[in-house]
Design a protein around this nucleic acid. Structure first.
Length: 574
DNA sequence: GCCGTTTTCGGCCCGACTGTTTTCAGTCG
C-alpha cells in the first residue's frame, strides 16, 4: 500500500469525523497525519515492515491510535474503524463537502432534506429553485452553489505553474499601474514555486486598500467577483482561474507577505513555535502575549529574525524541518539560476528537436553558459526519430567541428539512450564509450512491476558510460503517474556509482520531484538540472528545474552542471 | 488525537468574508 493511498484513507476518516460532529482537534489530528504521510519520502509500509508500530509512532504527528489504524490497513487492507464510521456517514454527504462553500453542516441540511445521491442531483435541485425555499438558504446561496459546482467541474485538477505564472504576471503588471499601490507580489504556492497551483494569490501594500480593490475589479481580465471586503477581494480570471488579492498598509507588508506565502503547514508550525516564546503571529505582525502589544513588520526578513530564525526562503516553507534548521542556523544555501554553467540534456534536428546543434550552442552561450551536451534520442525510440549507431558517430564528428568553430562554449557529445524492457540499453557500450556523456532514460514498458523497474534502472546505473538517469520517475503531471520503483535502492546505487539523477525542467515533468530530491540529497546523491529542450525557446524553462532543486534543499555543490567545464570533465571521468 | 526546554494533562494558529445569526456560525485559506 502506497503513502498516497494511506493518506487518502486518513483524509477520508477526517471527513467522516467532521460529518459526525467530532471535536475539531481530533479531525485536525487526522488531517495533519494524512498530510505528513502524503509528503513522507520513505514508504510507510516499508517502515512498518522494518520497525513495526514503533516506527510509525516515531513520526511526529502520528500517535498510537492513528499508527494502529495505519498498521491495520497495511496488513489487512481493511479498517474496522473506517467501516464503523462509514455506517454512520452517508457517502452522499462526503460527496457534497467536496463543493467549495459547502461544509459538513450545509451538507447535512441538504442531504436530510433532499436525500441527494450525488453532486449532479444537487445541481438539478438547485436549477429547479428548490434550495432557496429551504430555511437558512436563499436565491444567492442557491446561485453560489451552482457556480461552485461549475468551478469544481472545471478545476478538478490543479494548474501547471507554467500556466499560472504568466496570468499572475499579467495581474501584477496591471496592479503596478495603479497609483495607490506601493508594492505588489505573488504569494501562496506560486511564490513557493510549487509544481502545480490551485489558485493565484497576490498581495499589495497600499494606504488605500479600497481604492486598489475598486481598481482591480475593473480590469478587463476579471470575469466575476467572488467575494469582496475592505482588505481582500476574490475574482475569477477570464481563463477560469481564481485569484485572491489582499491589501494592507505598507507598515504591515512584511508580515502580510509572510502570512500569505504559507504554506498553511509552515504557518501553523511557526505560530506554535512563536506561542512557545510568548508571541502570537498574524498578518498584522507579532504580538507579545503578556502585553498585547503588536510589533509591525515592513520587512519579511525582520519578521523571521524577531522569532530568532534565519530567513527561510519561500521554497522551503513546507514544514519539512525548515523551522528547526533556521533556529540552528543550518538552512542550506540554495542553488540559484546564476550557479548553472550549462545544460546537459538537449535535443536537436538529429532526433525530434527543431533547432540545429549550432543554434542550441549559440542560444546557450547568450544565456551565459560555458558548456552544453547534445543528447538526442537513440533508435529504439522510433517515434522520436532516434539515431542508429552510425548516425550517432556522424553527429559526434559534427560536434567536433562546431566546437572548433565556436570557441566560447564547449559542446559535449552525448545521447539519451533507452533503457529497454529487458533492462539492456539500446546502444552498445562500444558506441557509448566514444561519447562525452550518456543519459539513460525509460521510455517504454512503464507498467513493469516495481522490482523489475528498479532492476532496469539499477542496471543502467551500473553501466560504466551512463552518467545521468533522465526524468527518473517517468511521471507526466496531470497525465501519467510515476512508475513503481524502490527509491532507496536507486539512491544508494546511484550515489555509489557516481551517477547523477536528473531534475527535468519541463513544466509537465519536473522529475525528479522535490520531496524525492530532498531524500536523495540525504543519500549523498548528485543531480543534474536539465531542460530536455527540443527548441532554443525551451532553454529558459531551466527556472522551473531550479525551483524543484530549491524545494528539494539543494545547494550548488549537489548539482553537477554548476561545475566549471574542467571540473565537470573530471567528474565524468570518475 | 497529538504533544511536552513550563506540561503525561490541558491545551491545541489566526483572521477575513458571507449571510440575515443584529453578535454569530459556517467556511475558507
Amino acid at each position: 500500500m502506497t503513502n498516497s493511498e494511506i493518506a487518502n484513507f486518513l483524509y477520508e476518516l477526517a471527513e467522516m469525523l467532521e460529518i459526525v460532529g467530532e471535536t475539531r482537534f481530533r479531525i485536525v489530528a487526522y488531517e495533519q497525519a494524512a498530510h505528513i504521510v502524503e509528503n513522507l519520502p520513505e514508504e510507510l509500509s516499508d517502515i512498518y515492515k522494518e520497525k513495526g508500530i514503533g516506527g510509525l509512532t516515531d513520526i511526529k504527528g502520528i500517535g498510537q491510535s492513528i499508527a494502529e489504524k495505519i498498521a491495520e490497513i497495511i496488513t489487512t487492507g481493511k479498517s474496522k474503524y473506517y467501516q464503523e464510521l462509514s455506517k454512520k456517514v452517508p457517502k452522499q454527504e462526503l460527496n457534497l463537502i467536496k463543493i467549495p462553500g459547502i461544509g459538513p453542516k450545509t451538507a447535512q441540511k441538504l442531504y436530510t432534506r433532499f436525500k441527494i445521491k450525488n453532486i449532479k442531483d444537487l445541481e438539478k435541485i438547485a436549477l429547479k429553485g428548490k434550495i432557496r425555499k429551504l430555511s437558512g438558504f436563499n436565491t444567492i446561496t442557491e446561485e453560489n452553489i451552482l457556480a461552485n459546482i461549475k468551478r469544481l467541474k472545471k478545476r478538478e485538477k490543479r494548474l501547471l505553474i507554467s500556466f499560472a505564472e504568466p496570468i499572475a504576471e499579467e495581474c501584477l503588471v496591471a496592479l503596478k499601474k495603479c497609483r495607490f499601490v506601493e508594492k505588489c507580489e505573488m504569494v501562496g504556492s506560486l511564490r513557493r514555486m510549487k509544481e502545480t497551483i490551485g489558485d493565484i494569490d497576490l498581495v499589495a501594500s497600499s494606504e488605500k486598500p479600497n481604492s486598489v480593490i475598486n481598481y482591480f475589479i475593473k480590469q478587463s481580465f476579471v470575469k466575476k467577483i467572488k467575494a469582496q471586503g475592505t482588505a481582500k477581494v476574490s475574482i475569477i480570471h477570464r481563463k477560469g482561474i481564481a485569484i485572491d488579492l489582499e491589501i494592507l498598509p505598507p507598515k504591515d507588508s512584511g508580515s502580510l507577505l509572510q502570512h500569505l506565502t504559507g504554506s498553511k503547514e509552515h504557518n501553523i508550525h511557526l505560530r506554535k513555535f512563536a506561542n512557545n516564546k510568548g508571541l502570537s503571529l498574524s498578518e498584522y505582525g507579532i504580538k507579545t502575549l503578556k502585553t498585547d502589544k503588536i510589533e509591525h513588520f515592513k520587512d519579511e526578513k525582520k519578521f523571521y529574525k524577531k522569532l530568532g530564525l534565519a530567513y527561510i526562503p519561500p521554497e522551503l516553507r513546507e514544514d519539512q524541518g525548515e523551522i528547526e534548521a533556521a533556529s540552528k542556523n543550518k538552512l542550506p544555501r540554495l542553488i540559484t539560476l546564476k550557479d548553472i554553467k550549462g545544460d546537459l540534456h538537449l535535443h536537436t534536428q538529429w532526433s525530434e528537436g527543431s533547432s540545429t546543434i549550432e543554434e542550441m550552442a549559440r542560444a546557450s552561450l547568450s544565456n551565459g553558459y560555458s558548456y552544453i551536451a547534445i543528447t538526442d534520442h537513440t533508435y529504439g525510440l522510433g517515434i522520436a526519430n532516434g539515431m542508429d549507431k552510425m548516425t550517432i558517430l556522424k553527429q559526434a564528428d559534427l560536434i567536433k567541428k562546431v566546437n572548433k568553430k565556436l570557441k566560447l562554449i564547449k559542446i559535449f557529445s552525448g545521447v539519451e539512450v533507452n533503457i529497454k524492457a529487458d533492462s539492456s540499453l539500446d546502444i552498445a557500450d562500444e558506441i557509448l564509450s566514444k561519447l562525452d556523456i550518456v543519459i539513460a532514460s525509460v521510455h517504454s514498458s512503464f507498467h513493469a512491476p516495481e522490482e523489475k523497474m528498479t532492476e532496469r534502472i539499477i542496471k543502467a546505473i551500473n553501466n560504466p558510460y551512463v552518467k545521468i538517469i533522465g526524468h527518473p520517475s517517468g511521471r507526466i503531471l496531470k497525465k501519467r503517474p510515476s512508475y513503481d520503483v524502490e527509491w532507496e535502492i536507486i539512491f544508494k546505487e546511484a550515489a555509489k556509482n557516481n551517477v547523477a539523477l536528473e531534475i527535468n525542467s519541463l513544466p509537465d515533468r519536473l522529475d525528479l520531484k522535490d520531496t524525492l530530491v530532498h531524500e536523495g540529497k540525504r543519500h549523498g546523491l548528485k543531480f543534474a538540472i536539465n531542460t530536455d529542450s527540443h527548441d532554443i525557446a525551451h532553454l529558459e524553462q531551466i527556472k522551473y528545474g531550479i525551483s524543484v532543486a530549491r524545494r528539494g534543499w539543494l545547494e550548488k555543490k549537489d548539482i553537477i552542471n554548476t561545475y566549471s567545464s574542467e571540473n565537470l570533465v573530471n567528474w565524468l571521468k570518475r
